[in-house]
Structure formats: C-alpha cells, structure tokens
C-alpha cells in the first residue's frame, strides 16, 4: 500500500484555487438564472391596449327606463401571440328617462368579482364578499367591503344610434380609480 500524506494538510491550502472556484462557480450558475429571470420579467414591459372606444350595442337595445342591463364588450384582443376578436369584458348600461346613457364596468372594485344586478332589490350585489351598490354604482351600504363605487366608463352615443364605450379595467382594492395599464 502506497503511503499518502494527509490530504487535509493545511500547508497545501491553495487560496487561488479556492477563490477562483467560488467566483467561477458563482458566475456560471448565474447565467441560466439571469437568462430565465429576464424572460420571466417580460410581462412587466407589456402595456394594456384597452381604453379605445368600442361599439357595445345599439341605442334601441336599451330602453329608457333607468334599469341597468348587461352587455359584453367585444374587441380585437391581443393575447400573447394571438390576435382575435373576443370578449374583453362586460358593462352595465343604463338609459335614464331623460335619455342619458351611463356605463359601469361589471367588475367589483373590491376584489374583482363579476357583480350581478338584482332587479327585485334594485341594486348590484357582489357574489363574493357581499358588496352592494346602488343602480348608479355608488356603494349602498357603509359596511360594504368595496372601497369605492362601481367604475363608471366613458360613453358616447354615435349618430344617435350606437352606444360606444371606452372600456377599461381599474385596479381593485383602492379607494381611487386607478386604470390598469
């Protein structure tokens, strides 16, 4: 049997090899992590293209009785690699007897659920955390979890016939209306 000196002999310490190993090991391991993280963070560069006016329905489809009615908003939508015409959300439209049209986003400003309009109670009810809103969108109960009224949207009646809405989503959970971008 050959005799070997103790490999843990401190005299053989090689500071260069130790330092270089740690540095090289660290740097080469970082390469795949950084490459991946860059792609992971790609969504931060993307901006919402919502906010353009979209034709929602005709004026005739909305009786002037002040009762909210739900309409889908269908627009050209970019979903990663696909471009298609697809629903991007929904709105409650209301036409007062005076003929004024108002629009509310159907999404509850509390946590983002889809609110229902309950005709018997003449109010919107959120099925998730019981927020309630008046027909004009205002919070109807001080104990309502929602920090703000339903989000109103800009409406335009074009040519006296068509209802166009500037559809947008807003950040949930804030007292102010902050558009999602």
């Amino acid at each position: 049997m050959q005799q070997h000196p103790d490999p843990k002999d401190p005299a053989r310490r090689n500071f260069f090899a130790e330092g270089a190993s740690v540095v090289i090991g660290g740097v080469i391991s970082l390469v795949p992590v950084v490459a991946g993280a860059r792609v992971l963070l790609d969504p931060l560069r993307r901006k919402s293209k919502a906010g353009a006016a979209t034709r929602v329905t005709s004026l005739d489809a909305l009786p002037p009785d002040g009762v909210p009615r739900k309409f889908p908003v269908i627009a050209t939508r970019t979903d990663a690699w696909n471009k298609s015409t697809a629903p991007i959300g929904a709105v409650y439209l209301r036409r007062s007897p005076e003929g004024v049209v108002t629009a509310l986003n159907v999404v509850c400003p509390h946590a983002g659920c889809f609110v229902d309009y309950v005709a018997e109670k003449s109010s919107y009810l959120c099925p998730c955390h019981n927020s309630t809103f008046k027909p004009d969108g205002a919070v109807s109960d001080a104990k309502s979890p929602s920090a703000r009224a339903l989000d109103s949207l800009e409406v335009e009646v074009r040519g006296g016939k068509e209802i166009w809405v500037k559809f947008q989503n807003f950040r949930a959970g804030h007292a102010e209306k902050i558009p999602c971008t």
Binding site: H4, A17, E18, S21, I28
Partner: peptide, 22 residues
C-alpha cells in the same frame, strides 16, 4: 502524486471545465 481532497484543487478544475462548457 500524493492524495488530495476534492476541495479545492479538483473543485477548481471542475469549475474551469464547467466554464469551458458554458
């Protein structure tokens, strides 16, 4: 040659080889 521990000399060689691969 005499025996040696994995650390640091072999680790260093491995690290250099991995760097060459990368």
């Amino acid at each position: 040659k005499p025996d040696a521990a994995f650390w640091p000399d072999q680790v260093f060689k491995d690290a250099v080889a991995c760097m060459a691969v990368l």
